[in-house]
Design a protein around this nucleic acid. Structure first.
Length: 657
RNA sequence: GCCCGAGUAGCUCAGUUGGUCAGAGCAGGCGCCUUGUAAGCGUCAGGUCGUCGGUUCGAAUCCGACCUCGGGCUCCA
């Protein structure tokens, strides 16, 4: 029998009999690997372990340790979910079931337009575990369009996918490596007695490799995400390589829930959402308003020294403004309905830009004036779908830290570079360290502005990203028709990304409003406009900060920085002395008098996430000291000189630690 | 907007098959206790059980509509 030679990732070679599969290779390397092997990557393409390997191939074995392995596990678990549902609901049909971050989902249409109840998940889960226990093989079959249509007759969504794949346009958006050589071909998998699913694979060898999963929730989802399509029933689940990983993930979900800003905002008495206001509208309580003011003050301070001019604009304007800006053409769905007054039609503003444009246009501008940078904490109103509203993160009224920069073409690169630098500097001050940017370039269809302008602006954005050493991805063609842009995500303390900043070129509004400046050549030129927001929405930024810090805001932002606890009533006088020293130094502090036991008051201070809970008793009165409980520590620090404590606090606040 | 779920005192929640089911803890008020580091004791007050309609001798509980909140609505075989 002939042999084949295979090369492994470490550069070594192995010789196996002709016809050997990925599973054989894994076993040849070691029985331990064979047990955990999921698929093989053959010459860069993921393959089932049961597929014979070609001679000379570069092969690596994928286990659950890798992202690829987890992806396979989730994908295969989704198949088991579909198998269970089709078992339990005769007449049900299925659509798609991809792996996603942390898990998978599968979309179904049940007979009689039935829906899943949360209780159904238990039954499905049990059936899935039976399928796992019986260790059914995932068997792959190649097929053609006609056969596939027959096999999946009665399953309209599968047939739609078959047609799409047969036309060769299904793989265009799939990530490169897996789609490279399967374009246009059809495959399906068979498990158990009769379950088949259209799938390009690969899959784990058998269902016994699965099992560390949990079904999470039921949701409605439109077929292809299109509102005009039928609403399918989606089941979400999570799946992991081990019981421990699954438990870890479920634990992280609980932790994330604890830092939900909607819960923290209410617990810490910062913000509330009275029903009488309407969805997506909040009121700010004194403590929340104080924090917000600190954020806004800092923003204003930075813009003041950053070369911005402050402007203000009204909340409503006549329709002519929105006609000129074009918002009524392309943004009307997101605008609040008009108000008729004195024979004119007014709209609440969804954006600040048209107002800032009118400020620019209020007098003749010279090249000597540019760049002009107009800044406003501008409240805008947008009609968000009721189902999209989410606490402070997505609301119908919010405040943008909005600026519009008007400059000459040749100023664009330098302006973008300093702008990105400014953006990151402000975000860093709030404790964000990890950033991820996205560059969106010229879209394929209609776009305004000449080619040179697009190229210059896009290059400017790219070099600004390079200069800032910011990692970024490029969304080719993802820009708006009026200009390219950069979006900046921050990663919070538990690894979640939040899109905050956006820097967006606009070649359209200057044109629509006929903006001009007089150049050094004495001719009139059109300025370039840059929209930018750093925090995006102040409300949302506040929510992100709360989640990032789990409510424990750094001292410079904490509504109450120090709480002084006298041990007994006789120490009240000294506590008030400490309080006045704190206040004189500009700190926000209170005294919690001794009418409850100390332990209870310490606890209350901790629960309120006060950065410093200070205890004063006999020793402190005698020695002018305090006992300090820094947030996040268990053991108090006794006999700290008051002066030293104040210095420490000053340092902490000044450095925004 | 659409699908699923939820809505009981400021907060967190109990309330079995419709019949003292209107309750608890925390928070709040008032007393007592005077406390050295994560919940001292007692006491009082608080809710038209989201709203409106229906079924029933009887509804927090069953049904319908509406309101609000939560999750989801292409991470594409």
């Amino acid at each position: 029998m002939a042999n084949i030679t295979l090369s492994l990732p470490d550069g070594s070679q192995r010789t196996l009999p002709d016809g050997a599969t990925g599973a054989d290779l894994a076993l040849d390397i070691g029985p331990g690997l064979a047990k955990v092997a999921l698929v093989a990557i053959v010459n860069g393409v993921e393959r089932d372990l049961a597929v014979p390997l070609p001679d000379g191939a570069a092969v690596s074995i994928v286990t659950a340790d890798s992202d690829e392995g987890l992806y396979i596990i989730r994908h295969s678990t989704a198949h088991v979910l579909a198998q269970a549902v089709l078992d339990l609901w005769p007449g049900a049909t299925y659509a798609i079931g991809p792996p996603i971050d942390h898990g998978f989902y599968y979309d179904f249409l049940l007979p009689e337009k039935a829906t899943f109840n949360p209780e159904d998940l238990e039954a499905i889960d049990s059936r899935m575990r039976e399928i796992v226990a019986s260790d059914q093989l995932f068997e792959r079959y190649e097929t053609n369009t006609a056969e596939a249509m027959e096999l999946f007759a009665g399953h309209p969504y599968k047939c739609e996918i078959i047609e799409k794949v047969s036309n060769g346009d299904a793989t265009t958006e799939l990530s490169g490596e897996a789609s490279a050589d399967v374009s246009g071909s059809l495959s399906y998998y068979r498990t158990g007695d009769g379950f088949v699913d259209l799938c390009m694979g690969p899959h784990v060898p058998s269902t016994g490799r699965l099992g560390h999963f949990a079904l999470q929730k039921v949701a409605g989802a439109y077929w292809r995400g299109d509102e005009s399509q039928p609403m399918l029933q989606r089941i979400y689940g999570t799946a992991w390589a081990s019981k421990k990983d699954l438990a870890g993930h479920l634990h992280r979900l609980l932790e994330a829930e604890k830092r939900d800003h909607r819960r923290l905002a209410v617990d810490l008495d910062l913000v509330s959402w009275p029903e009488s206001l309407g969805p997506g509208l909040a009121v700010w309580h004194p403590r929340g308003a104080l924090v917000r003011k600190l954020i806004e003050d800092y923003s204003r301070e930075r813009h003041e020294v950053g070369g911005y001019d402050f402007v203000f604009s009204p909340h409503i304007a006549k329709s002519i403004l929105w006609e000129t800006s074009g918002h009524l053409d392309f943004y009307a769905d997101s605008m609040y309905p008009p108000m008729e007054m004195d024979g004119a039609t007014y709209y609440p503003k969804p954006m600040n830009c048209p107002f800032h444009v009118t400020v620019f246009d209020s007098s003749q501008r010279s090249y000597r004036d540019l760049p002009l940078r107009y800044f406003e904490l501008g409240a805008v109103y947008r009609y968000e779908l009721s189902g999209a509203i989410h606490g402070l993160m997505r609301s119908r009224g919010f405040t943008q830290d909005d600026a519009h920069i008007f400059c000459m073409r040749e100023q664009v690169p330098a302006e973008l570079a300093s702008l990105l630098d400014f953006t990151l500097s402000v975000l860093r001050a709030f404790g964000f360290e990890d950033f991820q940017a996205k560059l969106s370039t010229r879209p394929g269809g209609k776009a305004v502005g000449d080619d040179d302008l697009w190229e210059m602006a896009t290059d400017g954005l790219r070099s600004a990203l390079d200069t800032a050493a910011l990692s970024y991805v490029v969304d080719e063609g993802g820009g708006a028709f009026y200009g390219p842009k950069i979006d900046v995500d921050v990663t919070d303390s538990i690894g979640r990304p939040w899109q905050l900043s956006t820097i967006q070129l606009d070649f359209n509004l200057p044109e629509r409003f006929g903006l001009e400046y007089v150049g050094s050549d004495g001719e009139r030129h059109q300025p370039v406009m840059i929209h930018r927001a750093l925090m995006g929405s102040i409300e949302r930024f506040f929510g992100v900060l709360l989640e990032h810090f789990a409510g424990a805001l750094p001292a410079w932002l904490a509504p109450e920085q120090v709480r002084v606890l006298p041990v007994a009533a006789e120490h009240q006088e000294y506590a008030e002395l400490v309080l006045s020293r704190l206040n004189e130094s500009g700190f926000r502090a209170t005294v919690d008098p001794a009418d409850e036991p100390l332990g209870k008051r310490v606890r209350a201070g901790k629960v309120a996430k006060i950065p410093h809970v200070v205890v004063v008793g006999d020793d402190d009165v005698a020695n002018a000291t305090v006992g300090e409980n820094a947030r996040g520590t268990d053991s108090p620090e006794r006999d700290l000189q008051l002066g030293a404590f104040l210095e420490r606090l000053t340092e902490e606040v000044d450095t925004r630690a």
